[in-house]
Design a binder for these strands. Structure first.
Lengths: 214, 214, 214, 214
DNA sequence: GATGAATGAGCTTTCATTCAT
DNA sequence: AATGAATGAAAGCTCATTCAT
């Protein structure tokens, strides 16, 4: 958020992925998609580069023309997914300003990700949390960004007198992320389908009003 | 059996480890502990059995005297941890009957697990969610058990007229588990320490009353 | 395919290797040859893949580029040897029709195998009979084929009134195979060299006329 | 035959195994039997000492109280089997003097070994021929002894004018051993049962009279 | 004599990565 | 740009043998 001028964000939004510094290229994308699919099916460490290449319809060596390493493929896929999420949320915030509606939108987009691309959702659930070593550090960065957005919304709501002031915005933000992510996780792994919008409403109802009988 | 002094057995009895069907044994436990430590540090797939054995102070082959495979070591460690959690909760429920207090106790024990054994908490955060292949299936069983306990408490609260009846106990249960697990995760990975009891109170406050200004 | 000069292919055609369904390839053959040599020297279970690879002048992993497993290497070598034997016999039968001469030819080719490729002969003597588990089942198939060919010759001889009718073709076939194989075995292990043609004649003389003084 | 005085043989025969330099002992024999069974089932290299010990009902370490090594167990079992065979033949030769009957007796005892102890027969078929390295050298010694006995019978028959003089006693001896061993092998592996005496007669008929129509 | 827990060398196999073509 | 054959390090696991009890 900080390093980029608002104009730059707008431009990127308008242009889609065109100005991304990485070479898009047909095969580039095919490798990314294949990697997510294969890793979702077998897990990162059981997904040989050769299997990813085969799924993408390229030679093993070609993967290394587009990516530095196997790590790099997964990292890039996760990065792009987080970025898309983040961009989508920021975009919407330019139209919707009510903190409650903003939180609901975040919940909705988060929950929708399970049906938009199930393989990616599985990867996000399994591989992002994993291996404190090589993924965690960088994916932590994205998590933090998500949490920060939510915290800012909460704080704005508190300033506007909509939300209680006697609660920690950090705790609430983590609770909200965790609650939604767990619902998503449960749905993705059991293969259940659900209505993202309706589920988002339910979660927000609990978060906003609690479960105590009024 | 031989390596333990009778006193140790008595202590184990007191500690509630008695019904475990597996032979404790000095090395058995050392291998389990070492595995959790090494896997927490490097991740399951980057933790060679040789490293686990070295950490436990035994020969590589000795690991296979106590466990069928590398998988089996991790599985056992996770099983035992889940079981301890579950036992602890069930025990307390015999004294505490108020649904709100029960939920708070679950939250507290869940959050405490991060400080009781940080390595284990990391493993639970990283490896349990992972590799849909070989862990997920069995760890899913434990998750389900956790969720079930919470759902039952919610339902009881609804029957007693304490909780709102217009909400899904499943959604609430997943939200609660997710919220707490995310808080724990965040604290464990950033290395922050926190007061489990106080944090549990905060989470329950949000869950019960929501964040809307009354 | 690439490593072979066209001339080599033509030579292979002449040599009757053409119908083999497996990709010949330079390294493929080198690995097979190396495997037979090393296994002849040390026995299958004392011949590490690394030793075979080293003898073939390739990296350990390369063996698995051409063969599914260590088993597969040995199995393939034995298969090819049996097939060559069988093909050679069948071919000759199109010119030679006298049952006695046919048996003599089989004996001769069988005995020649010891001098053509001593390592292979040793492998056939030691490993084929061995390990009821993984070799026996498949090599039994080849043995049966050999025996069948001999039985058919015997039966034809009986029908033509050349051979006695009061003897079991099965017993005679096994006797003949066993007798020749034992002679070969003895020669191979003691390192004695012999004249295959002359020895074949002697064996057939005994088989046809017996050792009783007329 | 040569190194031992007749008296020594007679004494050994009379005394059974009592003066054998190895400690008989109950467990000693149980280990030998168990080894033969397990090795027959799984092959030498797939038969762990622990499995042999378990089958024998003793601890792993106990095997090493009676034998120097795993090799030694197998070697001893094979030795004893060969010796029993040899002793049985020599004994009978003191009553039966006709070369034809002697050969027939050898064939019969050889063929009977399949039904007397199938596991041992399998071991003799699979492991004796194997691994030029550690078994072959010593088992060669026994083979040679067998062949020598047969050769002497043949030569005696030639001297007595019963057998043809224009054939090599060595070739005939190997042929006879090989023929019988192959019949035995075939029967043992296919699990067929047969009449040893009748089969011995058939083999000798072929060997003595040949298969040519008179 | 008897045990069986412990050892650690050694095995087969996989796979990320390179590089000649 | 693209290939895919080749590499070799590294992993999980087995098991003959030892030795303290």
């Amino acid at each position: 958020m900080k390093p980029e001028a608002p104009g730059a964000i707008a431009a990127a939004v308008d242009a889609g992925e065109v100005f991304s510094p990485v070479p898009p290229g047909e095969k580039y994308q095919r490798i990314l998609d294949a990697a997510v699919e294969v890793i979702a099916e077998k897990g990162y460490f059981n997904a040989p580069v050769s299997a990813i290449a085969a799924r993408a319809g390229v030679a093993d060596g070609t993967v290394y023309l587009y990516f530095k390493s196997k790590d790099d493929v997964l990292r890039t896929a996760i990065d792009r997914n987080f970025d898309r999420f983040h961009r989508q949320v920021i975009e919407r915030f330019q139209e919707v300003h009510d903190p409650r509606e903003q939180l609901e939108y975040i919940a909705q987009v988060h929950l929708e990700s399970g049906s938009v691309n199930r393989a990616m959702a599985i990867v996000m659930q399994t591989e992002v949390r994993q291996s404190a070593q090589f993924i965690a550090e960088f994916s932590h960065h994205h998590l933090v960004k998500y949490i920060q957005v939510v915290r800012e919304v909460i704080r704005r709501g508190q300033q506007q007198g909509i939300f209680r002031q006697d609660i920690s915005d950090g705790v609430v933000a983590h609770c909200m992320f965790g609650a939604i992510d767990e619902l998503l996780s449960s749905a993705v792994f059991t293969g259940r389908s659900y209505d993202a919008k309706a589920t988002a409403k339910q979660v927000l109802d609990v978060l906003l009003n609690g479960i105590n009988r009024a």
